[in-house]
């Protein structure tokens, strides 16, 4: 995790060898914008990309992984990720295909099971949904869930791997990668800011 509590939070995107890890380039900026807008958490104004095979990963309390294509972690990547999760890190995985029958969903679930264990449904009453903003109905729905391109389902809950009651891996088929992939300057055109859930993620990762 961060070396000092005074150091700003840095949003990190995981770079892995297989697949298109950089398919949602605007998500970091949007998450950072939401943190700056709603909290006083010191935050770095620009995100970073962290190789999954590097132990540099241990310096970030929350890392973000997304993509469309099949995912296969190398042994080095799997070892680093396993250590990261055991040391208290939180991996947030989002299916950019928002498709339970898609290649990314199938392969990344297998890889997570291999590294951290099976994903289980996260109750919508979990403290994650009250860490900062209150989401009474669980994870906020995205506009991409019912657009007909993916599984065309509204996913009622997220999946997670818990380590000692703490979320170690959070998995989403809701396609936040698309939902949050716009320039933060355009956020003013939205009647409701759809990146508020990202604040809960960061606050949860920093406080649990």
């Amino acid at each position: 995790m961060n070396a000092s509590a005074n150091e700003p939070f840095v949003f990190a995107t995981v770079q892995y060898d297989s697949g298109d890890w950089d398919s949602a380039p605007m998500v970091p900026a949007n998450v950072i914008d939401a943190i700056a807008r709603y909290t006083e958490i010191p935050v770095r104004p620009q995100g970073v990309t962290v190789p999954l095979s590097s132990e540099v990963l241990f310096g970030y309390p929350l890392v973000f992984l997304t993509g469309h294509l099949p995912v296969r972690f190398s042994n080095k990547e799997a070892d680093v990720l396993r250590q990261y999760l055991k040391r208290g890190g939180l991996l947030f995985v989002d299916d950019h295909n928002h498709d339970v029958d898609g290649a990314f969903n199938k392969t990344v679930r297998e890889e997570i099971r291999r590294v951290a264990g099976a994903l289980t449904p996260l109750p919508n009453t979990h403290e994650l949904y009250r860490a900062f903003f209150v989401f009474e109905n669980g994870p906020p729905t995205t506009s991409h869930e019912m657009n007909g391109w993916g599984d065309n389902l509204v996913h009622e809950h997220l999946d997670a791997v818990l380590f000692d009651g703490r979320i170690a891996v959070l998995f989403s088929n809701k396609d936040y990668s698309s939902e949050w992939s716009y320039h933060p300057d355009n956020k003013r055109f939205l009647s409701v800011d759809n990146t508020k859930f990202a604040v809960n993620l960061v606050v949860y990762a920093l406080t649990r």
């Binding site: 950089d22 380039p25 605007m26 970091p28 900026a29 950072i32 914008d33 700056a36 807008r37 935050v43 104004p45 620009q46 320039h183 933060p184």
Partner: peptide, 13 residues
């Protein structure tokens, strides 16, 4: 290549 976005945190806050 996606644009590199460096946010102006002071303006946001």
């Amino acid at each position: 290549k996606p644009p590199t976005v460096i946010l102006d945190l002071a303006r946001i806050r």
